[in-house]
């Protein structure tokens, strides 16, 4: 049973951070703080130099991490060094998958990448610039090594495309709450409910991401039918402020943990609300 299991008993909180931001050691602590705060799955970014789907918050995280020396090999070591029990998903861009080389065999590409990821305990991938059309080789590699391949459904994904993706997806489906790039927002997008409605009858869990910032957002989105919430920029903003010297490193970890708790509790409250309305119907 793959990543679906995480969503089985209640709404899942899925945080995203870039591995190695702002440094290898600090980042290990931050990821562990997210688990303490209630994370159910962690999307751990492997930074790519051209993050075309990212807003400024995550672009800057990528720069910090790369400048601190993050590479794909270091990333896999990072995952090995992490002391967390929740499943990890690797979020990245396709060129790093395509270029990955197994130093022993010389094999290069998706299969080598998936093999190494599975070896360090990663359970799935989100590859931002890999639409279903181009995903064949990675899908095969995921099947061989027992990994999930999560796809993003955009507000613009409709009709035949939606059906195609339904066939390819596994683990959970990432429902992009609004058009555009990543970044924390002040409001919940009106597109969220509509997007959830389009995948309502899919049998994989639905996790909503893009723009979620507060526990209240989390509550509303889960109440609207999401099985999980994905939050990146609102957490990375805390790391960025810490990296800028606004507060010491231990406080950054504490702030991350309490932000995580706020989001997780919001999601739980949303699930209760939903149960209540479903009963009264």
């Amino acid at each position: 049973m793959g990543l679906e299991r995480v969503f089985a008993d209640g709404p899942a909180f899925v945080p995203y951070v870039a591995a190695g931001d702002p440094s290898y050691e600090e980042s290990l602590e931050y990821v562990e703080a997210l688990e303490r705060g209630g994370a159910d799955v962690i999307e751990l970014g492997l930074p790519f130099s051209e993050p075309i789907a990212e807003g400024s918050t995550i672009q800057e995280a990528v720069v910090r991490s790369l400048e601190a020396g993050m590479t794909p090999d270091r990333y896999f070591e990072f995952v090995e060094d992490l002391d967390v029990d929740v499943p990890l998903v690797c979020m990245t861009y396709y060129n790093l998958v395509a270029q990955y080389t197994n130093d022993e065999t010389g094999e290069r590409g998706p299969r080598a990448f998936a093999e190494r990821a599975a070896e360090v305990g990663i359970e799935g991938f989100v590859v931002v610039d890999l639409p279903a059309e181009e995903a064949g080789p990675l899908r095969e590699a995921c099947d061989e090594f027992g990994l999930d391949l999560v796809f993003i459904i955009a507000p613009t994904t409709k009709g035949d495309r939606l059906e195609q993706m339904r066939e390819h997806v596994s683990g959970y489906v990432y429902v992009q709450a609004r058009l555009g790039v990543t970044g924390a927002r002040e409001d919940v997008s009106d597109q969220t409910e509509e997007s959830l409605a389009r995948v309502a009858d899919w049998d994989v869990p639905k996790a909503v991401g893009f723009g979620i910032k507060t526990g209240e957002h989390a509550e509303r989105i889960v109440a609207a039918g999401a099985d999980g919430i994905i939050v990146g920029s609102a957490l990375v903003d805390i790391i960025a402020a810490g990296a800028d010297g606004e507060y010491p490193f231990t406080e950054t970890a504490q702030r991350l943990e309490s932000k995580a708790r706020e989001l997780k509790e919001g999601a739980l409250a949303g699930a209760e609300k939903r149960a209540a309305t479903e009963q009264s119907d």
């Binding site: 396709y94 639409p131 993003i152 613009t156 495309r161 555009g180």
Partner: peptide, 14 residues
């Protein structure tokens, strides 16, 4: 060649 872009752009590309 190919079409390696985020899903949100795929419908526009089609």
């Amino acid at each position: 060649g190919g079409q390696f872009v985020p899903e949100s752009l795929m419908p526009a590309i089609e």
